[in-house]
Design a protein around this nucleic acid. Structure first.
Length: 470
DNA sequence: ACCGGAAACG
DNA sequence: CGTTTCCGGT
């Protein structure tokens, strides 16, 4: 039964290209402990699908920032099964794995909305971000609304720094790909490639989410080999199942259709030709059928929904615990705003979804029994999606902050967010250029362009987003 | 649908 | 460790 899929091994190269500046936490990947394995993790995979336009009919950002809907559970499960070489994967199992993230606070279920989950981006931290700039930036200033109301955020560089324990240095390369990659090479560590695609990108998707950082150019450690769009389907590791025989990316069981396989082998650009759903396997256009990539239209990176806001919090960053924040706010009463991880700000307004979710009711109190990490405080805030939708708001929208970057802290754990670039789809279509506090405004990029555009010259330090690990 | 415990697996 | 698998319960 082995399906020869090695899928992840290939990752190294690819991801690196995606977004140079962002990274997920190391923990997101398999620690070194695992020998070679940096197996892809489910949430990572989900993010991957989310950023591809081709899969919008299957899974897409919707609702609050970080919130996504699995439109076609079976398909997502199938794709996941392919990736993991688990032919018998199904939504029930996949969802179990997703549930497993609740305690880790990576994801939360949006109650009341079927197949809807939300990433807890509050764990995302921007690393290597120009601190000073940040401090000055509105983001920071804005921060703390909620927190105990304290008005003072500690934005001092030091403070910030402390948040990011491992910044730039190469300190250990714990990053994702760097190490594993075969390239022990020289620079492997320089930037951790840990990058995550998702947050980056430059162009907003139409309605979808732009990237967190989107627009601004970060200096790429390496440039994208243009001509090849990392965001294209072929670029993703999704398609790679290394061990598979050359004609097929996935085990045959998954790929009934020969055509696909062949396409997949083509150079990136071509790979886009593959029908989206297909990648998975069949064409099930079913869902909404948004598959549109067909014509070879490049897939744009879609990021999380409302990037417009940034949230920064203090949070647990590296040490959430360390910070002592351990206690979470539990009840995040409605209205408090906390939760949002990222979304906090985003104004949910726009979102279309926000509206729809009325369903929430629960008080959400759950205690968490075991949290894995210490922080686990099950934060209700995040957890309950409830608030998110509605409350997010407060800040964001009204003030028009929308455009401005805001940072929010959560009360206790804060979260940070990176500067995001774009705005929430619903609200306004155009990216907020104004967002970028830090960096100079990016030139307006056509959104449809490939990421390369985004890169531009500007190089700042490498900003890295990381999820914080608690 | 969704939840979460438990056991097993690589 | 991060699921995968199974499953009883809601």
């Amino acid at each position: 039964m082995d399906c020869n899929c090695v899928s992840d091994l290939l990752l190294p190269p690819v991801p690196a290209l995606w977004t140079p500046g962002f990274a997920f936490p190391d923990w997101a990947y398999k620690p070194e402990s695992s020998p070679g394995s940096r197996q892809i993790q489910l949430w990572h995979f989900i993010l991957e699908l989310l950023q591809k336009e081709e899969y919008q009919g299957v899974i897409a950002w919707q609702g609050d920032y970080g919130e996504f809907v699995i439109k076609d559970p079976d398909e997502v499960a199938r794709l996941w099964g392919i990736r993991k070489c688990k032919p018998h994967m199904n939504y029930d199992k996949l969802s179990r794995a997703l549930r497993y993230y609740y305690n880790k606070r990576i994801l939360h279920k949006t109650k009341g909305k079927r197949f809807t989950y939300k990433f807890n981006f509050s764990k995302v931290v921007l690393v290597n971000y120009p601190i000073l700039d940040m401090a000055n930036s509105p983001f920071f200033l804005a921060q703390n609304h909620f927190n105990g109301g304290s008005a003072t955020p500690d934005c001092s560089p030091e403070a910030i720094q402390s948040l990011f324990p491992r910044l730039p240095d190469t300190a250990r390369g714990t990053s994702l790909f760097d190490r594993g990659s075969a390239a022990p090479g020289p620079e492997g560590d320089k930037l951790r490639l840990d990058t995550f695609p998702f947050l980056s990108s430059g162009t907003p998707c139409y309605s979808k989410p732009p990237s967190l950082l989107g627009p601004y150019p970060r200096n790429p450690p390496f440039d994208y080999p243009w001509g090849f769009n990392p965001y294209l389907p072929g670029a993703f590791s999704l398609n790679n199942c290394p061990k598979l025989p050359p004609g097929s990316l996935y085990p045959s069981q998954f790929y009934p259709n020969p055509l696909q396989s062949s396409l997949s082998q083509l150079p990136h650009p071509f790979s886009s030709l593959l029908p989206p759903g297909e990648a998975g396997g069949g064409e099930r256009g079913q869902t909404g059928g948004t598959n549109g990539t067909a014509g070879g239209q490049p897939a744009r990176l879609c990021l999380p929904p409302y990037p417009g806001s940034l949230t920064m919090g203090r949070t647990d960053i590296g040490n959430g615990a360390a910070l002592g924040e351990r206690e979470r706010v539990e009840a995040n009463p409605p209205g408090t705003g906390l939760s949002l991880g990222l979304g906090a700000v985003s104004l949910g307004a726009g979102t279309g979804t926000g509206q729809q979710s009325p369903s929430e009711r629960r008080g959400g109190v759950k205690q968490d029994p075991e949290s894995d990490s210490d922080l686990e405080i099950t934060d209700l805030s995040d957890c309950s999606s409830e608030n998110e939708n509605e409350h997010e708001f407060s800040i964001g929208k009204e003030s028009g902050l929308v455009n401005r970057p805001q940072l929010m802290l959560d009360g206790k754990k804060g979260s940070l967010l990176p500067p995001i670039s774009s705005l929430p789809p619903p609200v306004s279509p155009h990216p907020l250029k104004s967002l970028m506090p830090i960096t100079p405004p990016p030139p307006s990029l056509p959104s449809s362009l490939s990421p390369s555009m985004a890169l531009h010259d500007r190089h700042r330090e490498a900003e890295t987003l990381k999820m914080i690990h608690s």
